[in-house]
Amino acid sequence: MTLPQAPLQNILDKHPHDESSLIMLLQDVQEAYRYLPPEILVEIAKTLNVPKAKVFGVATFYKAFSMEPRGETEIKVCCGTACHVRGSTLIMDEFKRTLGVEEGGTTEDGKFTLEAVNCVGTCAMAPVIVVKDVYHGHMTVNKLGKLLKSLNPKKAKTTGAKAS
């Protein structure tokens, strides 16, 4: 697979080329490509003159980065303390069950990535989930089914990914 180089070049041009820019660079790459492609990490290592091993070490240490492509839609379930005491575990479990993925996992069809996040700043509406930057407050397992349906209207109940 070849990756588009244009965003990478823009990103490289935006930051000074030294080690302290590494995390910011990786953030921009994550945003542009939705993950950190290994060949880009190698490119970054060269440009910043940082050992490749270190770049991989940093890339795998921080949660903001993923080494595999994330799904088109990220479902963020707030598992902050306030949401936890108001039942976020039930929400998370139900997502895991219906999507058939673990926390941090992506559905086979690449549609959804399920993520646990910490307090998103809206504890007043706990438990909260965030889908495509929209906050859904006072979540219940009940509402969750409806929400999934609205996100994925075409998906047949029993089948997984379309072959592509």
């Binding site: 080690e19 302290s20 995390i23 940093v58 949660k63």
Partner: peptide, 21 residues
């Protein structure tokens, strides 16, 4: 930040600012 609770700790935060783990 890169998303790590431990980076709130002073020395880890500074390591992170330096671009390290």
């Amino acid at each position: 930040g890169g998303g790590a609770f431990v980076c709130g700790e002073s020395t880890a935060l500074m390591a992170s600012l330096e671009g390290k783990i």
